[in-house]
Design a protein around this nucleic acid. Structure first.
Lengths: 146, 146
DNA sequence: GTGGTTGCAAAGGTTTTGCATGTGC
DNA sequence: GCACATGCAAAACCTTTGCAACCAC
């Protein structure tokens, strides 16, 4: 998913981050992935072509991307954290717990929910608490029992 | 929060789980906590009075409680998983990222959101994806910059 | 009695860190 | 040139597991 067409390097620069070969490699790989990936997956996938890439750098870069708003990290019980690239003006994600597919949504109902919770409970929802796990249509159809 | 007044032992029994001293101790401590607690916190807190309690047992018991629907576990980036007790007929939680306070909610807007996402994207949200992190009124007031 | 439960310690997996080296700006 | 980024390996951290002893039902 790369609707704006901005390259990884362009995004890093736009975010005011220092450009390095490693960062471009990691950000680019993340950008090209339609599904969530773990730091380890990315590390193993990239080290083939880029043997000089260190594991810690992958973790640090992903962390930096999340900090810059260019990626988001999902926590999964008992599993490694999963990362997805964010569009600069993105809203929320739907992430399939089965296949890892990620869809960006911008539904009014989310905003309605945020306002309702604030009004009723005085509770301000975190922006990134509104990324949702579930089953995508394909996986739901393939295995209705979940 | 213990509105139904059911004791830990009663809940375990009602859930068809085997009663042991350790399980009652852990479930009771979780039930008495208004805030989320980690397995390690619970272990350290309880070992003072119950030196015979093992760390693995705390993990296993919390896991069992989640499985039985009597507790829920929240994943937190870079931190240990945090547990809260659930009311048997509870719906969703609001968990403060600052103080860990947990509130149970049953808002129509959540159901509206679930339906909208299903209708528009064919995506079925996980029930426990609808536990929300954010800032409670008290913490929001205390530190508006959050 | 039997199968589930426990405690311990060790292993497993993920992520972070220290430090010397390298490099973008 | 200087501050920041990197690689490596070790450490830290959370959680799970193997196994013998134990206990609820």
């Amino acid at each position: 998913m790369n609707p704006t067409g901005a390259s990884a390097a362009e995004r890093l620069m736009a975010a005011g981050r220092r450009l390095t070969a490693q960062r471009i490699i990691v950000a680019d790989a993340l950008l090209r992935s339609r599904r969530t990936v773990t730091a380890q997956e990315l590390f193993e996938r990239l080290r083939r072509r880029h043997p000089f890439l260190g594991r810690a750098t992958v973790f640090r870069t992903l962390d930096m991307l999340v900090d810059a708003g260019l990626a988001r990290r999902f926590e999964r019980a008992g599993q490694a954290g999963a990362y997805v690239a964010c569009e600069p003006n993105h809203h929320h994600h739907l992430v399939c717990r089965c296949c890892g597919a990620s869809t960006e949504i911008d539904d009014e109902e989310v905003a309605v929910l945020v306002e309702a919770v604030r009004a009723r409970h005085g509770f301000v929802l975190d922006h990134d608490a509104l990324d949702f796990r579930g089953l995508c249509r394909r996986c739901e159809t393939a295995r209705p029992a979940g």
